[in-house]
């Protein structure tokens, strides 16, 4: 984890599968289920085996499930806030959950990214893609406007220079 904290460069787009430690975490935390252990473990095994992440330029998609499949997509710019949570067991394994929220009507997280060792780097990456965190360079549309603005200013300047000249001439004549 120290390496991640030091800001080791991680290529986010290459992340696809959760780390094997997630399976370890599932096994150990399933022990809490008591008698329901076989069922819980089976469900989690399917989840672990089918869990896929995809990070592209626009957003994240995450899918899992064999019988009941689920896929969640969200765009970076719609992210409201990002949480990083972990319990003792997860920290022992070097894992943490990234909980991502959008502005939908839900107190819980819309997407929980789990089982990644690079959680901190990923969090920072997602955060930098979120709205309001960085100044965007002027977009193409506004550069046209920018030019128009400078042209207008130039014309105004010319006009007032013209006025100045006229005034000067009038003064000479009188």
């Amino acid at each position: 984890m120290a390496g991640v904290r030091m800001g080791r460069e991680v290529d986010i787009t290459t992340i696809e599968r959760p780390h094997r430690k997630l399976w370890t975490y599932y096994i150990v935390s399933s022990l809490l289920a008591g008698p329901a252990l076989p069922i819980v473990l089976l469900v989690r095994w399917f989840r672990y085996e089918t869990l896929r992440y995809r990070f592209d330029d626009e957003g994240i998609s995450m899918s899992w499930g064999i019988l009941f499949r689920r896929q969640i997509n969200l765009t970076y710019r719609r992210i409201q806030d990002i949480h990083l949570s972990s319990n003792v067991l997860e920290r022992w394994l070097g894992l943490a959950r990234i909980e991502i929220q959008t502005a939908s009507g839900n107190a819980g997280a819309e997407m929980t990214i789990e089982g990644l060792l690079e959680f901190e780097a990923l969090r920072d990456h997602l955060y930098s893609k979120m709205r309001g965190t960085t100044d965007k360079a002027a977009s193409e549309g506004s550069s046209v406007q920018q030019e128009l603005l400078t042209a207008l200013h130039a014309v105004t300047e010319e006009l007032s220079a013209l006025r100045g000249r006229l005034d000067a001439k009038a003064e000479v004549r009188s």
Binding site: Q80, D81, H83, L84, S86, N87, R123, T133
Partner: peptide, 12 residues
């Protein structure tokens, strides 16, 4: 025991 790190941008 459960650590929680929350980040919110002022824009939101």
């Amino acid at each position: 025991v459960f650590t929680h790190e929350q980040t919110m941008s002022f824009a939101n």
